[in-house]
Write a protein that binds this DNA or RNA. Structure first.
Lengths: 139, 139
DNA sequence: CAAAATCCATACTAATTTGATAGGCATTAG
DNA sequence: CTAATGCCTATCAAATTAGTATGGATTTTG
């Protein structure tokens, strides 16, 4: 029941690109260093993001990546779907018996609701402040 | 972003126990056969359910398992937490930067809301009918 | 042009998790 | 006693995750 580093680091990349949207290409090296991540690994994650058209690449010296659209038009769901596959708590929901099928569907819809209504703009604008939100720490 | 067979089969076991609650112990063999699952594998899954007190075992011939409480008092969240660990889309939410932390918390709370408000009674009562719910098939 | 910066592609690997299987001991109903 | 059942430990194969390694290909600066 976890989102792997693929989705998490992928979101990290996209948030960085959103923060610098309109300021020209951002290199993976910059993003890797700022977030203490492996540049090589990020390369593997951004490849599908490029292939599906969420980002565009500019090659050569002083190149990098830019968002294909404005941050308010790209959602967390767009990113997670590309890197983690379809958003669902189980594969083949249709094959489950009715009771569990209904449960998985409710969970799936709840997650989709959150991911599809959170844009990169939302995420980027909350990235600067370090304030703790009221509802932060509880399980 | 998946619930593994541990959680899914675990729920299957608990739903079966809920359906026969009050009718004496149910053996794993019965449950395994009814759901076409490996009895040995179910043994491994029910061990933590027994250790945490969600079910009680009756040893010996014609033994089996029974729920420790009425089906309306046990939730899907109780079962999933035991078999899958804490309900959260990422480990160490506290360590994430504010924007993503807020996103993970929203997802976590949405999932918890569903799991903690679905009881075994709900699930067991929907298990007999084979009717397709209106909102079944879409992604 | 040459060198540096950057993207691009493929292959390999170590660790972990998942989903079991195997075999035997312990307990109880009949 | 004996058959049916739970209980326990060990082992294992496949898949997934989280990277590393290597070597390009492309573009810009100087």
């Amino acid at each position: 029941m976890k989102i792997s580093t693929k989705g998490r680091y992928g979101l990290t990349i996209m948030i960085e690109l959103a923060k610098k949207h309109g300021e020209g290409p951002v290199s993976l090296k910059t993003i890797a260093q700022a977030n203490d991540l492996s540049e090589h690994y990020l390369e593997q994650l951004i490849a599908p993001l490029r292939n599906t058209g969420l980002v565009k690449s500019i090659r050569g010296a002083y190149g990098g990546y830019i968002l294909s659209d404005v941050p308010s038009k790209i959602t967390a769901g767009d990113v997670i779907r590309v890197l983690e596959g379809p958003i669902t708590p189980v594969e083949g929901i249709e094959d489950e018996e009715p009771a569990k099928r209904e449960l998985w569907i409710r969970i799936r819809d709840a997650i989709k609701e959150v991911l599809d209504n959170t844009t990169l703009e939302d995420l980027a604008s909350h990235s600067e402040d370090g304030e703790a939100d009221a509802y932060m720490f509880y399980i």
